Computed example of a mutant assay.
Amino acid sequence: MITPYDHQAMWSKAKVFLNRAMDNNPERSFDEQAFWAAASLELLGKAALARVSPLLIADPTEDGLNILIATGLIEGTAKFTSVTASTIFKRCQRAFRPFNAADAQRFADARNEYLHGSTVAFMALPPQAYWPRFWTLASILVNAQDHDIDELVGSTRVKVVESYLEQNSHNIEHRTESLIERAKQRINQYRAGTLPAKIQAEWRANPDLTAGLTYATTQGCPACGGIGELEGYDSSDMTYEYHFDGDVEDPVYATATVKVPSDYFSCPTCHLVLDRYELIQQAGLPETFEAFDDDPPEEAEYGND
């Protein structure tokens, strides 16, 4: 039996709702798509909070029944009710920066008007404005659960979501802040011994977060101050040094110093991962680094004509 506060069940339900939200016309009209998306946003918020503790979403009734259910002290078919969407979003704003509760509440208000009012509130905002705002909020809640967008919508729809996120001029700034703040939160919980057991097990399951690109160097982490690894694969900018043997005219071999664009950063301490150049740049990490290559590709017969 699935418990009513189970964060995985809420995550799965949000996925179902978003599949409906992303069904194109004529199967679903925009107002129906927007309704399912707004409903999924609240579920994503609940899942993110419940993953930390079910107590964060339990409605504290006078007899304490919901709190007892959330702690697992009471099982069975007892009714479980959660706090309001407004409370969910306010708690998400405090816990998962840079989530904006006021923006999220507008989606909830439009959903309520759609269900209970006399107008279709979603129609006040055209699709081209609705979806970038929605995905800006949803992506923060996805990151708060240590998931990626493709885990939510599937690989075939990732580009659709990314196209909406790119329309938000602050997307890279928000995404970088969200990733760094989540990494800080995780390591602080781990050090304080308050990281939930399930999350701790997930966190420990994959200690090697490196991408295995061609070149790498150590770099301080912007989240925890530990030593992370900056990686890149572009070797086009090389400065060759030629090595000779005695009186032989041609060089025997060459080595090279490579100026590598930064493509990926990971930290084994706090598990921060920045997997794009733009995120690395926004985080204030070096945009390029130097690496040594003792077996570089030949440079037009070592530079001789």
Rank of each mutant, 00 (worst) to 15 (best):
R28D: 06
F134W: 12
Y114K: 03
E249N: 09
T214N: 07
T239D: 11
P196E: 05
W203R: 12
Q200N: 14
I227L: 15
D237H: 03
F265M: 01
T217C: 13
Q33W: 00
T84N: 07
R191I: 02
R175F: 00
G284K: 04
E290K: 09
E75L: 06
D208S: 09
Q105D: 12
K159Y: 09
A14I: 08
Y302M: 15
L279N: 11
P127Y: 04
A102H: 10
E162K: 10
E249A: 09
A110N: 07
S12V: 10
E290I: 05
V52S: 08
T257S: 09
A50S: 15
D23M: 14
L115G: 07
D293C: 05
P286I: 00
T119P: 00
L152S: 02
A9C: 11
H170A: 11
D275W: 01
P297Y: 05
P261Y: 01
S53W: 13
V142L: 00
N188W: 01
L213R: 08
A121G: 06
E42A: 08
G226F: 03
F30C: 08
D23C: 13
A121W: 06
V83S: 12
A121M: 07
A85D: 08
Q282G: 03
I88S: 10
R157I: 03
V161W: 03
I140N: 10
V260L: 06
W131C: 10
I199E: 01
E298M: 06
A48T: 13
R111L: 08
F292R: 14
S40Y: 02
I187L: 12
H116M: 09
P286S: 07
A129W: 12
D63R: 07
G76A: 05
A223N: 02
A124I: 00
F292C: 11
R111M: 10
C267E: 03
E113P: 05
S29Q: 09
V258W: 00
P60D: 00
S236Y: 11
D305V: 08
F80I: 07
M123R: 11
S139L: 04
D250N: 10
F289G: 12
F107A: 11
Q93E: 15
M10I: 09
A9L: 14
Q200Y: 14
N24Y: 07
Y215P: 10
Q282R: 09
A129Y: 12
Q33G: 00
T87R: 10
A211I: 03
T255S: 15
P261N: 01
A223S: 12
R175T: 03
I149V: 15
S169I: 11
E231L: 04
I57A: 06
C224Y: 01
T218L: 14
A78R: 14
L279P: 09
Y277L: 04
F265D: 00
S262H: 12
I280K: 02
Q145A: 02
P207M: 02
G303N: 07
E27N: 12
S163W: 01
